[in-house]
Amino acid sequence: MKTTIAGTTMPILELTLDAGEAIVAEGGDVAWLSPGFHMDTSTAHGTGGQGGFMSGLKRVLGGAQLFLTKYTAPAGGGMVAFAAQLPGTIREIAIDPADTFMIQAGSYTASTTDVEVSVGLQKKLGAGIFGGAGVVFQKLSGNGTAWVQLAGELVEYDLAAGQSLLIHPGHLAMFRAEMPLEFATVKGIKNKFFGDSLFLAELHGPGHVWLQSMTAAKLAAAIEPYLPDKGSDNK
């Protein structure tokens, strides 16, 4: 399998597969592909080969689709491509029992067949964050390779044992799964959502964390004033 990540602001993930090689992704996310791929949609995909409907249901709780699609290359091989949904970057990560990751829901793009995509953490934080949906992280485990899309620019930190970092939940893009994560109410910070307090994620080391400069909620808020008023009767 050959991986190419092309582009800058809105990157493209292009996977070139040899005969019989396969990857798993959410079905509606494919951008283009060469002819001849066998496509099979099932709840069993994205479970690392370990489950069916119940594993798929757990994946839904983690923000993914119940059914994922497996793309298997034909005898002559083939190419399948996925486009980023937000300005940002696409990262390839290697996964094994010693390297598991938590990613913000919506970041998962594709993976090899032995990677498991499941719910990692789900936290309600009130109506002010993510439209009341709270914050959801998916867990990537098993053995193989996964590709994730992260929004905006990335900043990475290595936290040592005993170190911690307070992070707005929307900017916490990805972190190693063994790192303890808590949510704290920080008093004295006035904001338009919570009055005189703010919910922040507190991530504890040791481990590596990826922070993203953009969030979908802030992007939506930035463009909302320029959208047509649905309540007006403009003809």
Rank of each mutant, 00 (worst) to 15 (best):
A146K: 12
G106E: 01
L125W: 09
P169V: 15
K123D: 01
I167C: 06
V117E: 01
I129T: 07
H171I: 11
K187Q: 10
G106S: 01
V115Q: 04
T185K: 14
A127V: 12
L140G: 11
G162W: 12
V135F: 05
V119K: 06
L154T: 12
F137A: 11
A105W: 01
Y108T: 01
S118R: 12
L150P: 10
A173L: 10
A151C: 07
K187R: 15
Y108R: 07
A173F: 03
E182H: 10
D114V: 00
H168P: 08
V119H: 00
G128D: 07
V148F: 05
S111R: 03
P180H: 07
F183Y: 14
E116S: 13
H171F: 00
V119T: 13
H171S: 10
A151W: 02
H168L: 08
V117D: 00
A151M: 15
D158W: 11
P169F: 05
I167S: 07
T112F: 02
A105T: 03
L150F: 06
E178W: 09
A127K: 14
Q163V: 04
H171D: 05
T109M: 07
F183I: 13
S141W: 00
A127F: 14
S164E: 11
V117Q: 02
L125P: 04
S118Q: 08
A161L: 11
H171E: 05
P169L: 12
V155F: 08
V117K: 03
A177Y: 00
A133D: 13
S141D: 02
S111H: 04
L125Q: 09
V117P: 01
A184Q: 13
Q122Y: 00
G106A: 01
A146L: 09
L165A: 12
G134W: 04
Q149V: 07
E116G: 05
Y108F: 13
S111L: 01
E156A: 12
G152T: 12
S141P: 09
E182W: 05
Q138C: 11
M174Q: 11
A173H: 09
E156P: 01
K124S: 12
V119N: 06
G144T: 12
A110P: 01
T145Y: 03
G170W: 04
L181P: 10
Q149D: 11
Y108K: 04
E178A: 10
A105E: 02
L121N: 06
G131E: 10
A151Q: 15
T112S: 08
F130W: 06
G132V: 09
G131R: 15
P180M: 04
A151P: 04
G134D: 08
M174H: 05
F183R: 08
V148T: 14
T185N: 06
I167W: 00
E182S: 14
L172D: 06
